[in-house]
Simulated assay, not measured.
Amino acid sequence: MPIKIDHHIQTLPATIPFVAPERTERETGKHFLARLGANENNLGCSPNAIDAMARIASQTVGQYADPENYSLRAALCQHLGIEMNNVVIGSGIDGLLGLIVRIFSSQRDIILTSAGAYPTFNYHVAAYDRTLKTVPYRDDHEDLGALAEAAQKLRPSIVYVSNPDNPMGTWWPAKDIEAFIDQVPEDTLIILDEAYGETAPEGTLPALDCSRPNLLRLRTFSKAYGIAGLRCGYAIGHSELISPFDKIRNHFGINAMAQAASEAALKDQEWLAQTVATNAAARDELSAIALKNGLTPIKSATNFVTIDCGQDGAFAMQVLNGLMERRIFVRKPMAPGLDRCIRVSTGKSDEIEQLSAVLPAVLESLK
């Protein structure tokens, strides 16, 4: 007899939320000239983080990492002004999302998000056999009013919102996020994904308040800090929300290099400030390229610019495919209403120059 596989797992398609650029390179036999699709920090990470990784590699890589992530948590607490029982480390926000769905909801529970928002969250919702409900974006923003209204009506176990947003790059000021939080029922857990918080303008992130019993805020070292390859993020919240993670998390899941590099990067705020400034300049450059080619950039608070291609989703997909064929890796939103756009990450100057050089030819070929 075959080995038993959970019935729900059998019903799911084998998939990943994002097709990696490496897969495309393998299938085409061609390397990309510009990697502008994965919202990575192409500038790299702090030299201090690199030194920390080198130290681990030469001295303690043969040892198990601290399963309590104590030193990194202590550094975060000092940086953020919170207590040790208000933060948990995870393998990036993606890993934390899976744990959150598992901990704070049960089979068939309703979980609420925006149609077209971060697809990895939906991936975990499906994997744990929860019921996904969505509301559409409004004016390229996650619709906080509609989300709050749906939460009041549906009483979901979890509601997810990101600020700044992926895939559109838009954001709400802190006062609007705070008003949204106040409108959500107290028995609904709010996931506030702040992956791009470091690149957002002042006044975007609400002040930290770990006394709220239904709010988890997620942050990462993958974006502005430039350590995506090591997979390290963290959740901030009330101690009663943080403590259940210790019941099911992979205690050795954050490797020694990730812990050391993240702590070193966190302490190098001068390097972070320089990176954020460079990122802002790159956003301006990408926006200028879009305008020069008759396209419309959407004002962004992230490390990417979403560009309205001016027609429908099919046309935007043609633009994306044309760039990919010319070895420029970008991605696009897929939800109706958002799919008229492509999304281009900030990158190094030579990568942006490659985009600028080939985009006119792509658009000309589609006339």
Score class of each variant (00 low, 15 high):
residue 306 T to Q: 08
residue 306 T to S: 11
residue 312 D to G: 13
residue 285 E to Q: 13
residue 306 T to W: 08
residue 270 E to T: 15
residue 310 G to C: 07
residue 302 T to D: 12
residue 286 L to H: 02
residue 293 N to T: 03
residue 291 L to I: 09
residue 246 D to P: 01
residue 286 L to Q: 00
residue 272 L to C: 14
residue 297 P to L: 11
residue 298 I to R: 11
residue 318 Q to W: 04
residue 293 N to S: 09
residue 251 H to Q: 10
residue 324 M to Q: 06
residue 301 A to K: 04
residue 301 A to E: 12
residue 297 P to N: 04
residue 296 T to L: 08
residue 321 N to R: 13
residue 261 A to D: 03
residue 302 T to M: 12
residue 275 T to N: 10
residue 319 V to T: 09
residue 269 Q to N: 12
residue 273 A to V: 02
residue 273 A to Q: 13
residue 294 G to I: 00
residue 304 F to T: 02
residue 272 L to A: 09
residue 325 E to C: 02
residue 272 L to E: 14
residue 279 N to W: 08
residue 326 R to Y: 10
residue 329 F to T: 03
residue 301 A to V: 06
residue 259 Q to C: 11
residue 305 V to H: 00
residue 308 D to G: 04
residue 325 E to I: 02
residue 311 Q to I: 00
residue 274 Q to N: 05
residue 309 C to K: 01
residue 253 G to M: 03
residue 310 G to V: 04
residue 261 A to I: 04
residue 248 I to S: 04
residue 317 M to E: 15
residue 305 V to G: 00
residue 318 Q to E: 15
residue 263 E to P: 12
residue 264 A to F: 13
residue 304 F to L: 03
residue 252 F to N: 05
residue 254 I to K: 01
residue 258 A to E: 12
residue 259 Q to A: 09
residue 245 F to Y: 07
residue 322 G to A: 11
residue 279 N to A: 10
residue 260 A to W: 08
residue 326 R to A: 10
residue 312 D to I: 10
residue 322 G to V: 08
residue 284 D to S: 02
residue 329 F to E: 09
residue 255 N to P: 01
residue 313 G to M: 12
residue 288 A to I: 11
residue 251 H to I: 12
residue 313 G to C: 06
residue 327 R to F: 09
residue 299 K to L: 10
residue 255 N to T: 00
residue 286 L to D: 02
residue 320 L to V: 04
residue 243 S to K: 11
residue 257 M to H: 08
residue 299 K to A: 12
residue 253 G to I: 00
residue 278 T to R: 11
residue 326 R to T: 07
residue 310 G to M: 12
residue 248 I to M: 08
residue 277 A to T: 12
residue 311 Q to N: 14
residue 260 A to H: 10
residue 274 Q to I: 02
residue 301 A to G: 15
residue 278 T to E: 14
residue 248 I to L: 10
residue 282 A to D: 15
residue 282 A to G: 07
residue 250 N to Q: 14
residue 316 A to C: 07
residue 261 A to F: 06
residue 279 N to T: 13
residue 257 M to L: 01
residue 247 K to H: 06
residue 259 Q to D: 13
residue 297 P to T: 03
